[in-house]
Simulated scan of single mutants.
Amino acid sequence: MIKDIDKGWNRIKGEVQKMKNAHARIGILQGAPAYPDGTTQAEAAFWNEFGTEDIPERSFVRSTADEKRATYGQVMKKETDKIMLGTSNVKTSLERAGMLAQGHVRKKIKTLKSPPNAPSTIAKKSSSNPLIDTGTMLRAVDYEVKM
């Protein structure tokens, strides 16, 4: 008689199945508080990310993703190894990646200097940082994991 002993294969299959639709989203997510004038965080982020007639493009999400692409690939390889070894799961690994990316995007917002604000904008907001006025958008950068 042959006895089948599962040494983790069923767990691995289950985790791989979860990976099919799982993802992390990073940025200004739905539900972020609006500005006092009613402008949503998503609108302000979009205008800065892509630019308008009056606002130059100051990418902080796409540029961070491009700059950190290799880092995120390495992180997800390590997290996949942890999932296969049973020391992590898909949700936890995506949460780790989301927190990392959230920190990178927030750092980009704090350190982005170019293109600089117009002198009139600097005078109005008393700051030369192009992406920070009140800090509302910075605090609104978040992540979520969908399974």
Rank of each mutant, 00 (worst) to 15 (best):
Q102C: 14
E95W: 05
G103C: 07
Y35F: 12
L131D: 01
T64A: 09
W9V: 03
K107M: 08
V145Y: 05
A34C: 09
T64I: 10
A97E: 07
P115A: 06
R62Q: 11
N117W: 11
E43C: 02
G86C: 08
K7G: 07
V145C: 09
F46Y: 15
N21S: 13
I2T: 12
E53W: 11
V16G: 00
K91I: 03
S128V: 04
V90I: 11
T39H: 02
S120N: 02
I55K: 12
A65Y: 15
M84F: 15
A118C: 04
K18P: 00
W47M: 08
S126V: 09
D54G: 14
T52N: 14
E53N: 15
T52K: 15
K146L: 00
F50Q: 11
E43N: 08
W47L: 06
V141K: 10
Y143K: 09
D142I: 08
V16D: 04
D37N: 15
K82Y: 04
R25Q: 10
K125Y: 13
S93E: 02
E144N: 10
K68S: 12
R96A: 06
I109N: 10
R58Y: 12
A45V: 07
Y143I: 06
G31I: 01
K107I: 01
P115Y: 05
A34D: 15
A70G: 04
T111F: 03
I2A: 03
K108E: 10
S120R: 08
A65W: 12
Q41V: 12
I122S: 12
Q17A: 08
L131Y: 06
E144A: 13
E79H: 00
D81V: 01
I109Q: 03
Q74T: 08
K78D: 09
G31S: 00
T87A: 00
A22S: 14
D142V: 04
D54M: 13
D6Q: 03
D4M: 07
M76C: 02
R58P: 12
G38Q: 06
K7E: 04
A24T: 14
A140S: 12
V75R: 11
Y35Q: 00
D66Q: 10
Q41A: 15
L131P: 06
D81R: 09
K18I: 00
D37W: 07
K108A: 09
E144P: 06
D142G: 10
M76A: 05
E95A: 05
K110F: 00
E95K: 03
T134S: 03
K124F: 10
A70T: 09
E144C: 07
L94W: 09
L29I: 04
D6E: 02
R106P: 13
T80M: 02
P115S: 08
A24Y: 06
S63E: 14
D4T: 03
K91D: 04
A34T: 14
G38F: 02
